[in-house]
């Protein structure tokens, strides 16, 4: 079990009152899943993804990620979990602008104190997996949106994390590029058994998902397993 959530609620305090963004959610995600949190804008997908990633904490309820009970972990422990076992992919890529493709992908390995020699081999492998070997020395501003997102994917998987969290990874991409990056991630999921959790309302993504958690107004109203 890679994620285990029980009666999780998240409330935001805005304008003098509480807004319930996630309402009594219970959910279990197994190793190697290729799963989507699906729902309309404002339904709470990003909020849930952030809590799973340890970037935010629940107001009530329990959550374990990668066998760590997240409710009681410290900031330091959560940073460690993310660094070692998670990868993040964002809608707007979030690449570091002054870094080349190589350096962006290398960053998680540097953070994990991997020595230079094995870094190189891993970085080249990850860049190869997303098909960007010819852009190794380019800066993000010299890349297309699709190439940026592929760089971000390489960065998310370079340290072979158990879990990759992707928030609307195709929202800024055209159809062709969306399919390309979904194919890449599907392959990574199969090859390395890396679990993927997407937050999306993009129809194009849904065709690739093996499981869809439908969220509406902070509640799960349907848990759909897709038979291939």
């Amino acid at each position: 079990m890679i994620v285990k959530i029980k009666n999780l609620t998240k409330k935001f305090y805005i304008g003098g009152s509480f807004f319930t963004a996630l309402d009594n959610i219970s959910l279990e995600i197994k190793n190697g899943e290729f799963l989507g949190l699906v729902g309309a804008s404002g339904s709470g997908k990003t909020t849930l993804l952030n809590i799973i990633g340890g970037l935010d904490s629940p107001t009530s309820g329990e959550i374990s990620v990668l066998n760590q009970f997240m409710n009681t972990t410290s900031h330091t422990e959560r940073a460690l979990i993310r660094r070692k076992n998670m990868g993040f992919i964002f809608q707007s890529y979030n690449l570091l602008p002054v870094y080349s493709v190589y350096e962006n992908v290398e960053l998680p390995l540097i953070l994990n104190n991997i020595d230079k020699k094995s870094r190189r081999q891993k970085v080249l492998e990850a860049i190869d997996a997303v098909g960007l070997s010819d852009k190794i020395n380019s800066r993000p501003n010299q890349l297309s949106g699709g190439q940026c997102q592929r760089t971000a994917i390489a960065r998310a998987i370079v340290h072979k994390p158990a879990l990759v969290l992707a928030d609307e990874p195709t929202a800024n991409l055209d159809s062709e590029n969306s399919h390309l990056i979904m194919e890449i991630m599907k392959k990574l999921n199969t090859n390395y058994n890396t679990s993927f959790i997407f937050a999306t309302h993009d129809e194009k993504i849904m065709g690739y998902l093996k499981r869809m958690i439908h969220i509406e107004d902070g509640k799960i109203f349907k848990d759909e397993k897709i038979k291939l």
């Binding site: 330091t76 070692k84 964002f90 998680p108």
Partner: peptide, 14 residues
């Protein structure tokens, strides 16, 4: 700011 957030998401300690 975004870069800072990204570094945190990548697991760099605050």
């Amino acid at each position: 700011k975004k870069e800072i957030g990204t570094l945190m998401a990548l697991g760099m300690h605050k």
